[in-house]
Each structure stands twice: as structure tokens, then as C-alpha cells.
């Protein structure tokens, strides 16, 4: 293309009807070229895997007779999706994490918000120290954090059991009833600093004149916090809320580790990702796992969309 351009342009004055490339188009192409690294990654790591999963989900591995003469992969249409739609365990696991998310996310956000407001109120040098301190759990790799907490919870060797005995409390943090609160505590501990920082950052962006005006009008610090600061960090709350929900629905590493200690509580289908993982790598049913993954991705997309739609209304 560029060759033919070069060839033509010096020869004759451009004809008005010829498809010329304007500097505007070139500039746009140049701009687009800068997104190539992202676009390539996006296609390879995102679009292609999804297409691959869609293809996989339409097939199933079938054997015949005694099943000793090898397998064949056959096209089964939507069979895997029909099976998934009626697979109670899948939907139960989904319900389990949904209920958990509805309880844990608000608690976590409320605590993060309070901490952020506290930091904002304190200001100055204390803040730097606190900020780092609260962020430390977030910097610890999730697996390590989980192992530390499993040790703390352990009814056999954990200090919390001894601590409970001291007050004649007979608690077991790894029992069926306590499993979600225990995981919830761990996740809150882990992510509170991160959420707090995002909220705190958006607090910093509020124009100080607003506070000045409020103070002149005689508003207390509490009043300022709830009438000015909270509405202003609404967008940040929506964002952290959405990230938390998405993260929670996909909860995997924590239950997987808990499972190795209390398999009778954390069963193989405890959360959707755990179930998908077990279908793929234990039951060796890749095709079904692909179908479950797609359904799961669709559910997450829907939940995220609805959440965003209902919480992020433009300010009146």
C-alpha cells in the first residue's frame, strides 16, 4: 500500500476521487498502534481462551462397551449446559458464595470506610504509619496468609483454642458452622487495607473549600463525614464493592487450603471455582468444566452489570 502511494504521488497531482490517506487517518492508525501490545494480549489471553472454552463445552469424551478401548471426543451440542443447569451442586455452591458475599462485602466496606475516614481525620505523620500497617496483610501472599490463619484456627495446635479455654469458651473455628465466618474474617483481614486506600485516595480529592464552608455553617466533623465525605467517595465504594463481589464469587485458594485440613466441612463442590477445578482436574471432565466456567463467567458478568447499574446512578 505505502509502496503504491509513493509510486503514484510524485508522478501526477492527486486526483480528487482517489482514496487518499489523510494525516488524520495516519495519526489515528499511529494511535491505534500504541494499543497493540494490549490488543494482542487481550486477544491471546482473553478472547481466544473464551472461544476455545466455548468449543470445548460443546463436546464430551465418550467411551463405549467396557470403556477399555479408549475414548472419543464427540459433539454433544448443549448437553453440557443442560446438565449444568440441572446440577444442583453447582447452583448450591453459587448460592453459598452469594449469601457469603452479601454479608461479608458490606461489613468489609463499612470497616474500610470507617478506617479511611479515620485516617482522613487524623492526617499528618501518623497516617503514613497506619496506612502501611493496614496494608501489610494485603502484601502477604494470599496462600501464606491463609496458612497462618489456619494455624491460628487449628483446634489441635492453634493458640485461639487455648485462648478460648482460658475464658471457658469451647469454640472450633473450623467447624461447619464457623467455616464461613472464619473465611470471612481472613478475607476481611487480607483486603481491608487495599479497600481503605482506594477510599482514602478519593477522600483526598475532595476540595477543602467544601469542608470550610460546612464548618462556617457550623457542621460537626461527624456531620461533615456523613454529609460530604461519604457521598463524595460513593464512586470509590461502588468500585471496591464490585471488585470485592467479583473476587468473592471466585473464591478458590482459601477454601482449597481449608479443604486439606477439614475436608469433611469444605467439600469438593464448596464453591463454584472449587467445583470447576475438581471437574477438570479430578473427575477429568474438561468439557463439563468448560461449560460450568462459561456459565459462571456469565453469572459474574450479570451480577457485576446489575450491581453497577443500581449503585452507580449519576448524582442528582
Amino acid at each position: 500500500m505505502s509502496q503504491s502511494l509513493r509510486h503514484k504521488s510524485p508522478a501526477a497531482p492527486p486526483r480528487t476521487r482517489s482514496p487518499r490517506i489523510t494525516w488524520r487517518t495516519l495519526l489515528a492508525a499511529k494511535g491505534a498502534a500504541f494499543t497493540m501490545p494490549f490488543a494482542i494480549g487481550f486477544v491471546i489471553l482473553f478472547i481466544l481462551p473464551i472461544i476455545y472454552a466455548v468449543v470445548q463445552s460443546l463436546y464430551a469424551v465418550k467411551s463405549s462397551g467396557l470403556g477399555l478401548s479408549g475414548n472419543q471426543t464427540v459433539f454433544v451440542g448443549l448437553d453440557n449446559f443442560v446438565a449444568a443447569a440441572t446440577d444442583l451442586r453447582f447452583w448450591e455452591s453459587m448460592g453459598r458464595v452469594a449469601v457469603f458475599a452479601c454479608i461479608q462485602v458490606p461489613i468489609k466496606l463499612a470497616v474500610s470506610l470507617l478506617l479511611a475516614l479515620g485516617l482522613d481525620y487524623l492526617k499528618g505523620r501518623v497516617v503514613a504509619g497506619l496506612r502501611i500497617g493496614l496494608l501489610v496483610p494485603y502484601m502477604i501472599p494470599g496462600i501464606v496468609g491463609t496458612l497462618v490463619w489456619i494455624y491460628l484456627y487449628s483446634p489441635d495446635i492453634g493458640p485461639l483454642t487455648e485462648f478460648g479455654k482460658f475464658f471457658s469458651l469451647d469454640w472450633n473455628f473450623l467447624s461447619e458452622a464457623m467455616m464461613w465466618p472464619s473465611i470471612g474474617n481472613l478475607l476481611t483481614w487480607d483486603s481491608i487495607g487495599f479497600n481503605m486506600l482506594i477510599i482514602y485516595a478519593s477522600l483526598q480529592a475532595i476540595s477543602p473549600e467544601l469542608f470550610e464552608a460546612a464548618r462556617l455553617d457550623g457542621a460537626s466533623e461527624a456531620r461533615i463525614a456523613f454529609s460530604i465525605k461519604v457521598p463524595f467517595v460513593r464512586a470509590a465504594l461502588v468500585l471496591t464493592g464490585m471488585l470485592s463481589i467479583i473476587g468473592l464469587l471466585q473464591i478458590f485458594a482459601e477454601p482449597l487450603l481449608f479443604r486439606s485440613f477439614v475436608p469433611e466441612v469444605v467439600t469438593k463442590d464448596y464453591t463454584p471455582t472449587l467445583m470447576i477445578f475438581n471437574q477438570a482436574f479430578d473427575a477429568n471432565n474438561y468439557n463439563y468444566a468448560a461449560a460450568l466456567s462459561l456459565i459462571f463467567a456469565a453469572v459474574i458478568a450479570t451480577v457485576s452489570y446489575l450491581y453497577y447499574k443500581f449503585t452507580n446512578k449519576p448524582e442528582a
Partner: peptide, 20 residues
Amino acid sequence: LMTGVAAMAMAASLAACAGG
């Protein structure tokens, strides 16, 4: 899975891994 960041990307990569 363990280091996953964003929602869809994660679900998608999971689906990809599931497709052997």
C-alpha cells in the same frame, strides 16, 4: 487462579485451562 486479578479474565482463563 490464585494470582488472578480481574473477574472476566479469571473466569476466562479458567475456562481455557479446562479445555484440554
